[in-house]
Every structure is written in C-alpha cells, then in structure tokens.
Design a protein around this nucleic acid. Sequence first.
DNA 1: TAACAAATGTTATATTATAACACTTTGTTA
DNA 2: TAACAAAGTGTTATAATATAACATTTGTTA
Lengths: 130, 130
Amino acid sequence: MTQAQTLSKNQQIVLDIIEKANSPLKAYSILFNVQKKGINAPQQIYRALDKLIEMGKIHKIESKNAFVACRSSDCEISKATAFSICENCEMVDEISDTKLSKYLSSFSDKKGTKFKRFNLEFFGLCKKCK
Amino acid sequence: MTQAQTLSKNQQIVLDIIEKANSPLKAYSILFNVQKKGINAPQQIYRALDKLIEMGKIHKIESKNAFVACRSSDCEISKATAFSICENCEMVDEISDTKLSKYLSSFSDKKGTKFKRFNLEFFGLCKKCK
DNA sequence: TAACAAATGTTATATTATAACACTTTGTTA
DNA sequence: TAACAAAGTGTTATAATATAACATTTGTTA
C-alpha cells in the first residue's frame, strides 16, 4: 500500500509542464518555461526532476537527456521502463507490455545474476514519419 | 561481407585506450589520457568516438555518458545492445545473449511497429559488490 | 513547541558536447 | 599522375547539461 505522495510547489510546477507536453522535455527548456513562476535556477529544476523520478511520476529518456511523464502502471517506481523513440521527429512513447516487462524483469545473465532495474530504448520511425 | 575498416590515427588512439580500460571511459578522461599524444581538444575525441560508434567498435552507455569497447558479435553495428551495470562500482558488462537479442529485435509494439535498433541497460550489483 | 527532515533560493562552477573554419591527408577516377 | 572529392585534423570558441555548497524557510512529528 503506497502512500499517496503530495508534491511540493516546485515539484508540482515541473510535473504539470511535463504532463502537458506531448514530447520529452529538457531540463533547461522546463526552466525557461517556469521563470515567470519564480523559478530561476537549474538546481530547482533538477531537484524537482530527481524527486519526481524517485516517485515514479516521470522518467528520464537517457539517450536524449529529456524527461517524460509516466503513462504506465507496469513500471512501478521506474524499475522497469521501456520506450519507443522516433529517430525523425523525436516523439517518445512509453511501452507498456506485460509480457516484455515480465521477460526482462526475470532476465538473468549467464552467471545467473538478476537485476533490480532496467531501461530499454527502442529506435525507429513512428507512424507519422513512415 | 563487410569491408575491414582501417582506422585513422585519432580513431586508433581512442579505440586503444577504450579497449585497454576495464570500465567505461568518459570523453574528457580519454582526452586527458591522450594529451601526451598531441590530441588537445574535445572535438578530436568526440569525432573519433562518433566514427567508432558508427563502425560498431564501441558503444555508448547512455545512462553514464561513457564509452566501452564492443565485446560482442551479436550486436552488429550497434543495432542491438544490452549491458549490465553495477550500481555500486560502475562496472559495465556487455550482455551477449542470442535469445534476448532475437526476442528484442523482433519485438513490435501494440500498433505492430517494429524497430530498427534498441539499447537495453540493466542495473543491479555485480558479483564483487554483492 | 522544540527538533528534525525536506524543500527552497541562490551563486558559482563542473561536466558534457557541438559549431565553425582553415588546413591536410587519403582515396578515386579521368 | 593530375585533379578532385571525401575524410580526417587542429584549433578557438561556446552551447548545453548537471552538480556543489551554503544560507534560509517550510513542513512534520515527538
């Protein structure tokens, strides 16, 4: 039973912007968007981003240094994330596929080592760009 | 039949260093290591890195902004890469698992879209750190 | 309400990566 | 082999991404 998290002011501002966006946002583009709200420094953005990631509210797209809102229920606090990324228009979709998620969560390497967490990024062309 | 690639001077220098390392190297740490060899600027490193990635000689670990030599034959010009990353000591191993590679290479999302390329990063503790 | 944890605001700086331009070397082909 | 194109090099400058450190405020809980 996870406690419903209440967000701090800056966390809520940053999350709102990311949720409204339909593509991944970069930290500095978030910063430029919130300067009217009194947030002036990168630190304030990065701190909010860190907490939102911890809470599983957003994910970082590592290959793009950009952030998207979590749309999945599978990934439970970002232990198991998968994305499709369009190489042309930069669009990113979170992949929510129980079979894939189970397969990778239970994957172990040749030494039998299991892992706590994974992040998978697929690249190709989205429907529009094909 | 792929043509054996001959490397340029800088490409060879950078590749040598990455191959000798037993953990991922960052661009600027490569730079500091080769200044005695007359390479002075980040550009020179990044250009070599880009080409080496294109050739499939090295891979970028996206979550660490670091580079490792390719030890796999599965990944054919970096179309299908998977790594295990120790959260404690930062060690990275390339995962070479035919089944995993086939499964992910033929994966398609719910709209039936297939992808050209993927990168998978697993996180956990390595044998030493457990 | 005292004590502690979490979040904030701020300045400064570290780290990662690319732009732009002049020049050289290498490879191709007429 | 001369002429040209393509790839690579060297260099200066700067853009983009991210963290350190510290003083203060807010929120929580004993």
